[in-house]
Every structure is written in structure tokens, then in C-alpha cells.
């Protein structure tokens, strides 16, 4: 019973993680670079339709990845060692994931609500918010690289340490 529960929690953690990081990389590798090439009259297709929908799955993917990840660490008995970096192989990855999830919910999503006109804001506030969302999304892309390395090395010894 324990084995299947552990497996299911890990499965749900990876599923939500793919939702989260997949959309993060879509934003950074596809949407942001392509926005400049889209004619102005067609941009609302992104800002009014695609981006809000993508952001919904993105932020909830992040939330559930963290939730299932913490449950997994607790079930495996290493949550304290990992978060205090006594087990740095998975601990660094967990901290990077927590910082990234914080960025999603407390920086990127609030900034995107302003940039996309989902909440009332001054005309000046929109481009600033758009830039803030972009920079923090890029920062998350940067952190996703070591985060995924750590996650995989926690399960598959690299021989590096």
C-alpha cells in the first residue's frame, strides 16, 4: 500500500511539474521571442486569450508541484534534512523549486494581471509590470536548469558526489 501511494504522489508531482515547467519554457522559448514578430492588431489573441489560459495552468501546476513534492519528501523521511541542506543533492532542488513557485504566485502572476489588463492599472504601470514578469520568468527559467538536475540526481546517483 505504501509503495503504490509513494508512486502515485511522485507521479502527481512529476505530472504537475511538467505542466509548470512546460508552460514556463513555452513562455520563454516561444511566446516572449515571438511577440515582437506579431502584428499589433493580432497581439490580443495572445494577451486576451492564450496568455491568461496558459497562466492559469502555469500557476496551479506550480502550486501542486510544490504540494506533492513536499508530501513526497515527508513520506520518504528526508524533508527536514533536505530543507536544512544536510541532504544537499535533493535539498538544493527543493529550495530552487520553492523560490520559483514563490516567484510565480507573488511576482509573475500579480505583474501579468496588470500587464494583460486583467486588473485596473495606470497606462504607465503596464509596460513596467510586463518587464517585471518577463525578468522573473527568465529567472525561473535560469533556476529550472539546476533544479531539474538536482531532482534527477536525487533519484539517480551521478557519481559526482
Amino acid at each position: 500500500m505504501e509503495d503504490i501511494t509513494l508512486f502515485l504522489v511522485r507521479y502527481l508531482h512529476v505530472l504537475s511539474g511538467i505542466m509548470w515547467i512546460g508552460i514556463l519554457w513555452y513562455f520563454n522559448f516561444v511566446q516572449i521571442p515571438c511577440m515582437a514578430k506579431i502584428p499589433a492588431d493580432q497581439k490580443p489573441a495572445i494577451s486576451k486569450v492564450i496568455a491568461p489560459e496558459a497562466l492559469f495552468w502555469f500557476r496551479w501546476g506550480a502550486a501542486f508541484t510544490v504540494l506533492f513534492g513536499l508530501i513526497l519528501a515527508w513520506m520518504n523521511g528526508y524533508i527536514h534534512e533536505a530543507l536544512t541542506l544536510q541532504r544537499p543533492d535533493i535539498g538544493f532542488g527543493m529550495w530552487l523549486g520553492l523560490i520559483m513557485a514563490f516567484n510565480v504566485w507573488f511576482v509573475i502572476w500579480p505583474a501579468q494581471k496588470i500587464a494583460l489588463g486583467l486588473v485596473e492599472a495606470d497606462a504607465e504601470a503596464k509596460p513596467k509590470a510586463g518587464r517585471r514578469a518577463m525578468l522573473f520568468s527568465r529567472a525561473n527559467t535560469l533556476m529550472s536548469i539546476p533544479m531539474l538536475f538536482s531532482m534527477i540526481s536525487g533519484q539517480n546517483p551521478t557519481g559526482l558526489y
Partner: peptide, 21 residues
């Protein structure tokens, strides 16, 4: 962060630092 390629390079550098740490 304004450059996607520099972001990826920085991510790889951070990964190496993390492995050393």
C-alpha cells in the same frame, strides 16, 4: 535575463556551482 541564451548559460553555471557545493 534579457537574453535567453545568456540565461541558459547562467543556468548551466549555477548547476556547476550547485554540484560543487
Amino acid at each position: 535575463l534579457e537574453s535567453l541564451s545568456m540565461t541558459i548559460v547562467a543556468g548551466i553555471v549555477l548547476t556547476i556551482l550547485m554540484v560543487i557545493a
